[in-house]
Structures are given as C-alpha cells and as structure tokens.
Design a binder for these strands. Structure first.
Length: 490
RNA sequence: CGGGACGUAGCGCAGUCCGGUAGCGCACCUGAAUGGGGUUCAGGGGGUCGCGGGUUCGAAUCCCGCCGUCCCGACCA
C-alpha cells in the first residue's frame, strides 16, 4: 500500500498477484454476475491469436467448423449414464420462455456431445459418410461454486471438436493427432511446456473410454490441465443411435472423439510467464509485438520525433520478411503528458514483448534503443535493417521463453521420492511434479488426494517417463502398474 | 445450506462506539511547466452513505427487517 503502483509479488501471494495482473493489464474484469467475467480487448486479443493458430491447425488436418445451438433438451443429457452423472450437477436449466413454463426444460450446454451426436445420427447412413470431422467455437456454461478469472468461470469460451469414425483405431488415431496439435500449440505458440499422456479413471471425461491431456506447470508449482482429447468409444453412438452400414452390409455403431481447449489457456499464459512487473506475452500470441515510444523535450522535438516514430512503424509493418500475411504488429505510443518512464511501466505490465525507444540521441546515431520484456535486456540496434533485427529478437524471445519455462518446470520436478512421508512433506511445502510408481488402484489415488490435496495429473507418455521405471507403488509398496505424475492442481 | 466479516465517489478506505448535514489516497477533468524508467504545482468534477422502516428537532452513525458481497466445510475446462 506504500506504493500501490507496484504489484503484489509472486512470492508474497501468488493468487493476489495473478488477480492483479489480470485486472491491471486489462485482460478481464468482473461482471455483475458472480462467477462470470468480461474479457476485455487486451485479453480477447490474445484469445483471438490463439483461435487463429489453432483453427489453422484444425483446418490443416481436415476439420471444418460448424455451429450447434446453446440450448439442449434436458432429456438428451440423460441418454448417456456417465455423462449425466458428471454434468447434471453443474448445469444451468431454462424452465421458462416467452413468459410460459416450458414443456421440457432446456439445459444450457456444458459441452455439446449430446446434441452433436444426435445430429450426426441423422446425417450418417453409410461408411461412406464417415469420418465426420467438425469443430465449433462456442461458449459453454458450468455452474461452478469456486470461480477464478479465466481459470474457472460460470461461462467460458472454447473450441470443441467432435468426430465420428468407422473404427476404434481411427478414433484413437484422431484423439492422439489432436493431442499432438495441442502440444505443438502450447509449446510453439504459448511457449508453455506440457506433459502429454492419459488421465486416470477418476479424472476421465464423463462418458469417455480414455481421456488424453496436456498438463502444464504454473509458477506456483501447481498443475494446470490445459487441454483434453477424448476417445469416446461407442458410448455416445449407442446412446444416440449413431449407426452406419459397413462395406459388407452390416450395421455398426460409430466411434467418436471429442476434444477442447478454452480461454483457461489465457490464465495459463499469465501464470506461466508473468513476472513481478506484470504480464509477459510470447511474441507469436501478442496482439502488439513491438511498442515504439518516441521521446521529446521541446514542442519542436515532439513534431520531429513523432514523425520519426511513425516512419519507423511504417518500415516495420511494411516489411514482408516473415511473409505477407504475418506482418510485424507494431504500436506507436505518442501520448502527450505521459512521461516515457510511465509508458514503459504500462507496456511492461501489459506484456508487450519488445519496446523500441526513439529519441534525439538515437536519431543522431542512426539507431533505435530496444528493451526486451522477457529478460529486460536493453541494447541499441542499427536503424538500417531494423525490421530484420526486430524479427530476429522476437524469435529469440519466443524461443527463450519456452526454454525458461521448461527449466523452471524441470527444477520443480522430482523423480527420486522414496517414501510416502517424503511425498507428504513435498506436497505440504513448495509442491512439485512428483514422478512415482502407482499400483493402479483408484482408492489409493483418493486417499492421497484426501491427505495431501495432490492428485495424479497424468500417466505420462513414454518420452516423459523416467529412464528407470519405478518398480513399486510409492504409497502401498505393491508392484507399480504405471509411473504417474502427482501434483496439486488448479 | 451451517459459522465469521463487510457494504460510505470508479477503486481502496476513514468517519459509526460518543447522532449535528460527508472526508482521505489513488484514478478522472482543466491549465502551466516537465519529458531517455512511475513529474510537479494550481484549480476542478463526481457520493440516493446497500435497501426499507422506526426513534429523534436532526441519522452514514442508534433500533428492527431485508438484500448483497467476501472468507472457511460436499464439485471441476
């Protein structure tokens, strides 16, 4: 309170820090309805970049977008037993419309499997109609009790892919293909390293055969489930009578997948990269990659310098070295009455990856002064060929942010825990991703959750597993069925 | 739904015990100077004190009722 310009630091109070960054960087704001939020232009701009990148990847793998309605007949939810059990408690239900009570209540979609497979059943007759590869960008509603900006709100934005295939293997291949896309997106765009793998039964999607996920570590060493891809088997096809005639003339139920990522990723971005000065956005997702701050003293200089800044902006945005469709995203901050230092703090808070300062001294030396947001390193760069230099710096920032995040995760990963007591100490302390053996018993998992708040985040894919697989279950000492990753989670 | 706290300007708060006609910081507006890391001075705008009732000459303050929010005990992208 001594200086309310400063953020609460991450070390002081990570949750308070997170809330302050989201609010003060103007990513989002609380709405009058408890548990729901407004996504402001700064936050929505990041989401739009995410959408574009993901959408391109979905299209490149043969998917098309469509839109299914918000309202679903309540009876649909009840057709798949596991599904209704999982989602009914958190559904918003519409009972009145047009001033009259409805004959059948409508639920506001918490996810769209039911309405979508109902429609697919109408559209599919023959194996020739398969596969169906559809994605939709939509809002969904889940009535949560404990909410947090971006991480858990009553309503959120996401994409949900829903596919139908002729065989189990095709569906499995699809679920894994999408998991790969999610991983690439997280690492190459968000600069957020993830662990891929399989969820245990207790964390599996309601109605799925198998749930795959990407799991990321936040700076407070808690895990964030950042995306899920489900092999639904024939569960929904059977519930919604989604059948087709095979090549040999028999009737068979289709095999489905569904998969999604949400605006929760924006929260993940903040908690992965933010520092005590605010947000840090990796260049590829930054709505503004470069901010130019012209510096002047006199009125005369103001005219000269803002013109020079404008010229610099034009040169940067007209540069096509990154391809015609991927121009540098540049903003000039020529506001009067705000001192340069105040502008620096503001753009740092908002996470703009690179700042260019342009003052009389730089003009004279035919250079511009640059400051990286990620490392806060400053350097003069030559005015000649500036666009290329800027693009190179942005690439370096993108790469360095991933490296830094990966190193942070590895530093908080423990593969050598030898007793349950030691495990409890870790979880009661700073926390970590703990790789350990597990006997496969859901009751053991439940007990550990009860006692330590930690859960099995993922049964990791081969590349993440330890070189020497654990032989015994950490908790029971029985033979291990899997090596799993334990952590406290959001 | 059970236990604790709070509701006063956009935000954060003081004032409430002990009634006297609303204040502080930040933000905002105007002007001047300032301008390479959060600028200063001067002037200014903005409040049904959560809502309703009561007591009183007079209520943010006392009394009653209601509403809402936040924190702690069953779910989750």
């Amino acid at each position: 309170m001594a200086d309310d310009k400063k953020l609460t630091t991450r070390a002081e109070d990570f949750s308070a820090w997170y809330n302050e960054v989201v609010l003060r960087a103007e990513l989002a704001d609380y709405s009058p309805v408890k548990g729901s939020m407004v996504i402001r232009p700064n936050g929505y701009g990041i989401w739009e970049r995410m959408q574009r990148a993901l959408d391109d990847m979905f299209k490149a793998t043969g998917h098309q977008n469509a839109y299914f309605p918000l309202f679903i007949p309540e009876s649909f939810l009840h057709k798949e037993a596991q599904h209704v059990e999982g989602f009914a408690p958190e559904c918003a239900v519409v009972t009145h419309g047009g001033g009259k009570e409805l004959e059948e209540p409508l639920i506001v979609r918490p996810t769209s499997e039911t309405i979508i497979y109902h429609m697919y059943a109408k559209w599919v007759q023959s194996y020739r109609d398969l596969p169906i590869l559809i994605n939709q960008w939509a809002n969904v509603v889940r009535w949560e009790m404990l909410t947090r900006l971006f991480l858990r709100t009553l309503e959120f934005l996401w994409q949900e892919g829903h596919t139908a295939h002729a065989t189990h293997d095709e569906a499995e291949e699809e679920a894994l293909r999408i998991l790969g896309i999610y991983r690439d997106f997280a690492e190459q765009w968000m600069a957020m390293p993830v662990i891929t793998g399989l969820k245990t039964e207790s964390e599996r999607f309601a109605g799925a055969l198998r749930t795959y996920c990407i799991e990321a570590m936040m700076q407070d060493r808690k895990a964030l489930q950042a995306g899920t891809s489900h092999n639904l088997g024939q569960n929904f096809a059977k519930a919604f009578d989604l059948q087709f005639q095979t090549e040999s003339g028999e009737m068979a139920h289709a095999w489905n997948t569904s998969w999604g990522v949400s605006t929760r990723l924006v929260g993940g971005l903040v908690m992965t990269h933010g520092d005590d000065n605010g947000l840090r956005v990796p260049p590829r997702l930054a709505p503004i990659e470069v901010v130019i701050v012209p510096i002047w003293k006199s009125d005369d200089e103001r005219g000269r310098l803002s013109e020079a800044a404008e010229q610099l902006r034009r040169e940067l945005t007209e540069w096509t070295g990154r391809g015609n469709s991927d121009r540098l995203r540049v903003h000039v901050d020529a506001r009067e009455g705000v001192k340069p230092g105040a502008k620096y703090y503001e753009w740092e808070l908002r996470g703009v990856p690179l700042r260019l300062e342009l003052g009389p001294r730089d003009i004279e030396k035919q250079s511009v002064f640059s400051a990286r947001r990620d490392t806060r390193a400053k350097a003069a760069i030559a005015r000649a060929g500036v666009a290329e230099s800027v693009a190179r710096i942005l690439d370096a920032i993108q790469a360095d942010m991933l490296t830094e995040a990966k190193a942070r995760r590895e530093a908080a990963t423990i593969r050598s825990v030898s007793s349950y007591d030691e495990f409890r100490d870790i979880m009661a302390g700073d926390g970590a991703f703990v790789y350990a053996g597990w006997n496969g018993d859901p009751e053991v998992e439940a007990r550990v959750k009860e006692e330590t708040k930690a859960t099995i985040r993922v049964i990791p894919d081969a590349e993440f597993r330890s070189t020497v697989p654990p032989a015994k279950c950490l908790i029971t000492g029985q033979p291990a069925r899997h090596e799993v990753v334990w952590a406290k989670a959001y």
